[in-house]
Computed example of a mutant assay.
Amino acid sequence: MRNILYVALAVSLATICGATQAQSYPTKPIRLIVPFAPGGTSEVLGRIIAQKMSEHLGQQIVVDTRPGASGGLGTTLTANATPDGYTLLFTSLSPIVINVSVQKGKLPYDPEKDLAPISVITKVPSVFAVQADFPHRTVKDLIAFAKANPGKLSYGSSGTGSVNHLIVELFKSAAGIEMLHVPFKGAGQGLIALRSKEINMISAAPPAVLPHIRSGVFRAIAVSSATRSPALPDTPSISESGILGFDVSAWYCLMGPAGIPRPIIDKVRSTLVKTITTAPVSEHLIAQGAAPAPTTPEELAKLINGDLKRWAKAVEVAGLKR
C-alpha cells in the first residue's frame, strides 16, 4: 500500500513539475533539427513554420540542418537530446519508418521508443518532374520508352531509401520497367542535376520542385497520389495514367526526444497547429502543395506503427534490406 502511495505521489509531482515548466516554456531558443540537406522539402517547410512559431512562442527557433544516413544522423541527435522541449525534429517519414527496414537491427534509435510524437504537419505526393524539353510527354510515353530501352532512363531522388526513391521503385515494379536510380544528398542536389540534364527525371515532393515547374524550367508528368494535387491541377496522377490503384504519398511531422513532459508537448503542438492552420502560413503551405494535416501525438504514433509495416514491403521491392 505504501509503495502504491509513493508511486502515485511521484506521478503527481511529475505532472505538476511538467505543468509548471510548460507555463514558462520556452525561456531560451529552440533547436529545430532538419535531418536533410538544404533545398529539400523538410528544410523549405521547416523554415517557413519555424519563423511563425518563433513569433507565437516569443523565442527564436533555430533551424539546424543535419543531413546524413538518409535522415538518420539528425534523428539520432534528436533521440539523444535532453527531453526538455529545446530540441525538436522536423522530418519526413524516411528516418522514422523506412530506415527501420533498410537498416534492420542496426539503427541507433528506435522511433517508437526514443522519440516523442507531436503532430503530423502535412501529407504530400511525390512529383515526377522532367526537363521542359524532355521528349516523353506522359507517363505512358515514359513507360513505352523504358520498356523499349531498359535502363536507359535515369531518375534522381534525395537519397537511397528515401521516400521519393521508394515511390519510384514501386512505380517501376507496377509498370514492369527498369530505370537507373541516381541518389543525391538531398533534393536540392537532384534538382541541380536535372537542370543540367545529368538525369532524365526527379522524384520530389511539391515544395521542392514547384518553383522550377512554375518557372517553366521543369515539367511535371505525374503525381504519386490517387488524385491530382491541388497545386498541380493539370498534372495527372499515376493511377489515371494507366497504373490503376497506384497511391503512395509521404508525410512530414514534428517530433522530439522521448521523455518530454506532456504539457510541453501540448504547448508545442498547439502552437504548431495554430501556425500551420492560419494565414499566412496555411496559404503558403497550400500553394506549395502541402496542405496542413495536423494530428494528435497519439494519431501520429498510430500512423508510425502502421507505416513501419507498410513501407517494409516497399523496401523489399527496392531490394534494400541489409
Rank of each mutant, 00 (worst) to 15 (best):
F246R: 02
L300T: 01
A290I: 10
L272M: 05
L93S: 09
G72M: 13
T91G: 02
G18M: 03
T27E: 11
K140S: 15
A287G: 08
L93Q: 10
K197E: 08
S119Q: 13
D266H: 05
K140Q: 15
Q288D: 07
S92F: 03
P294S: 07
R269A: 03
Q131G: 14
Y86A: 13
L89M: 01
G188N: 13
V34I: 14
T227F: 08
E298C: 03
P117W: 05
K28Q: 15
I243T: 00
D110T: 02
V11W: 06
V11C: 11
S270Q: 10
P83I: 01
R322M: 14
S249H: 09
G18N: 07
D141S: 11
P263M: 08
S24E: 13
P292F: 09
L142D: 04
S249D: 04
E198M: 13
S173P: 13
F246P: 01
K113Y: 07
S224P: 04
F171N: 06
A250L: 12
A208I: 15
I121Y: 02
A222C: 01
A287T: 02
D307P: 03
P207W: 04
A279V: 03
A144Q: 12
I167L: 08
G245P: 11
V7D: 10
I177G: 01
T76F: 09
L232F: 01
G151V: 04
P233L: 08
V11H: 02
F246W: 00
E240T: 07
I33G: 00
K28C: 03
A293S: 12
I260D: 01
I167G: 06
Q51Y: 06
V217G: 12
V127G: 13
G259V: 02
Y86M: 09
P257Y: 00
A222D: 00
S12N: 05
G74P: 06
W311Y: 13
S229M: 02
V44G: 15
S70Y: 09
N305S: 15
S92L: 07
I238T: 00
Q131A: 15
M255D: 04
I276P: 04
G190N: 10
G39K: 13
S70V: 14
I177C: 01
P297M: 02
P294T: 05
Q131L: 15
G259I: 01
L153N: 00
K309P: 11
A50S: 12
E198F: 09
S282G: 03
I286K: 08
K140P: 11
S12D: 14
Y252G: 10
G85L: 06
A287L: 10
